[in-house]
Write a protein that binds this DNA or RNA. Sequence first.
RNA 1: GGCCCUAUCGUCUAGUGGUUAGGACACAAGGUUUUCAUCCUUGAAGCCGGAGUUCGAUUCUCCGUAGGGUCACCA
Length: 447
Amino acid sequence: MIITRIPPSPTGHLHIGTARTALFNYLFAKSQGGKMVFRSEDTDKTRSTKAFEEEIIEGLQWLGLNWDNDVIIRQSEHAPVYREYLEKIIANGNAYISKEESKNTPGLLVEVIRLKNPNKVITFNDLVRGDITFDTTELGDIVIARSIDDALYHFTVVVDDFLSDVTHVIRGEDHISNTPRQILIQEALGFERPLYAHLPLILASDRSKMSKRHGAVSLSSYKEAGYTKEAIINYLALLGWNPGTERELFTLTELISEFNIAHIQKSGAVFDIKKFNWFNHQYIERYSTEEFLAYLEQNFPTRLRELPNFSTERLLRLIPTIRERIDTLADFHDHTDLGEYDFAFAAPLDYEPTLLEWKNDTSPTVAKPRLEKASTLLTDADFSSPESIKATLWPYAEEVGKGELFWPLRIALSGRSQSPDPFTIAYIIGQEETLARIQNACDKIGE
RNA sequence: GGCCCUAUCGUCUAGUGGUUAGGACACAAGGUUUUCAUCCUUGAAGCCGGAGUUCGAUUCUCCGUAGGGUCACCA
């Protein structure tokens, strides 16, 4: 049975890189019929918080990356276990208690536990990179515990991986240099060595490790900006891995069946927000009206309904238009309105009359009779679809010129130089509102 | 600086000794019955450098160079 693990440290928000590491562990385990276990590495009592732990757990679950252990393993609850193995490693002579000056509080004499380094050359096989060799002599006698009841990272990782029967350690490339230390501890304890796979790092655009100074790095910040979990999973999977085909769109389930560790890249991958946006657009576009509405409601909880002249009916008709035009919800100007899509609710009143002027026209005045004619035609029109509205107006447009009619009509309905076509807007706002807006435009033109 | 890892279009990548070096994002131009968006077509854009192995290197080896990671009583 293949067992992988995702052991985040609850000392900060769920980093997008941690989410990706979890994804790869999940995909590998599931593709092999194995399991992934979750472990909270909260041995650093001063930096770990319950809130961060909850955020990390919620984030991974939101993505659908579920682990297989029923109870969450917390290293803070394992002190007695570490003590047992610490006693064992001291008893077998591979570690010793060292009385020395504290590094944290200079002047204070403390007893730390150090591994007796055999000073040997260690070679381990990395599933991504092949053999990697280190001379551990330069590591010295590493400190594995502050005291018998206070084990440190390298020691706790080795013990917990052993206790969880972890077969594959899949983690970021930044852990490569930790591997020989952990192997030394495994050997001192007589544990079997798991298989290792070190993933290439996600890089910022300057090719350095992605960090806060590069902008958004937490999963929650992307979630809040309106990225869908489908897009996040899909994009993250393709950052440092490829299916071996030219296909790019995959669901989590499809990724499980396509996943192959041999296709993991060796070099770091730059996180490209533009491509990420494209993925998000792909998934948003595939949402049904109901799914999109749920997506909107989730991200604009109450404010959506506080828009002036809000109407659920109109919103439902607006959705197909928004769906094909946005990459993320952040594309709306801010989280208080629908930005450039506000024409769906409030009538545009403050645009300049000159905006009604088509490029072939010399003054907006010439558009007035066209708008009046359109108004007449629309009075008897079928408003059940954009197409029926279009059919009503088409013959007349061919007569006077399409731009000559549709441009001023579109401005009259949207008040914007760029917007969806007039048929779509008329359909969204309905007949009564359409006629009122055309009348308003005519009034603006005056004589 | 020591140690370790890496190196194909701007970015993500396919490629495993012989290819017109392929795809995607982004970009540019044109088109799709008015603007925006969508969609379609086309285009520009790449094998880090030098030796070596070989009939032949993007591909194998070595040396450079560049970039990254890591050097805690953090994880």
